[in-house]
Amino acid sequence: MNHLLFLFLLWFQSGAADDHFREGVAALRAGDASQAIAHFNHVRESGITSGALELNLALAHLRIDSLGMAAYHFRLAGRHPETTDLANQGLVHVSENLARRSPGLPVLGLNRFLNRLLSEFPLQRLALAAAGMFLLGMGLRIAQVVNPVAARWPRWIAWSGMALAGALLVAAVGVELARVRHPIGLVVVREVPLRNGPDPAAATDLNAFEGYEVRVDRGRSTPQWTHITLLNGSDGWVPAGVVRIF
């Protein structure tokens, strides 16, 4: 039902979205990056997006030297197959510039693994595999009901397939729940102090810089403060809004 509702809204909004997209491209070509960003964001705020839109948004932010936001939109554009290659080229360029601007950060292997799991792991493919295994298992079970055979191997395959499907589904749901609680984001401001508490007067040990990939803890965040963990394991609170969540 929700899917149908979305398709209806998509059809309803796509006309206006196309108009804003064209105007954004024209503004970007004319060198008015801010106007282009406004048009593109208008489309995004309506709840729809596209690979081209994300790529153009990244280019527009690149024009105004907002490397963190550019990296954010390049990574979103990379999720669309039709713009993956261009997005990767842009990410390389942005990463080189961010490396010049932001100090390097030692990376803990566990944090890198968690961040990749929470941001890049293909959960839908996992769910698709679970569905396939379940269909295989149930198909064999139905075939056995319709036409029982004496051999045991169809039953074993059926139950194994369904058990594997259940395990995959549990894993997918578990990771998805973790993503809800701990989404991955990017720091999009030049520099922000990482404070020991959700308080502007709290002590700070180090700063987070533009382009840092962080893991957000929504359970410890407040409307004004976001709790983040850096790749080196340091954690703390930063003002809400300085981190863009994927």
């Binding site: 979305f6 998509l10 909004q13 796509s14 979205a17 196309d18 997209f21 064209r22 491209v25 970007l28 070509r29 282009a36 995004r44 709840g47 729809i48 997006t49 596209s50 690979g51 081209a52 839109l53 790529l55 153009n56 280019l59 669309h80 039709e82 713009t83 261009l86 080229q89 842009g90 959960l123 839908q124 769910a127 997918a172 749901v173 998805e176 809800v180």
Partner: peptide
């Protein structure tokens, strides 16, 4: 890198959850 003028298919901004 030039802006991409030809739009690609619209999709939802929010990726649907597994469930």
């Amino acid at each position: 890198m030039a802006p991409v003028a030809a739009n690609t298919p619209w999709v939802a901004v929010a990726t649907p959850r597994v469930w």
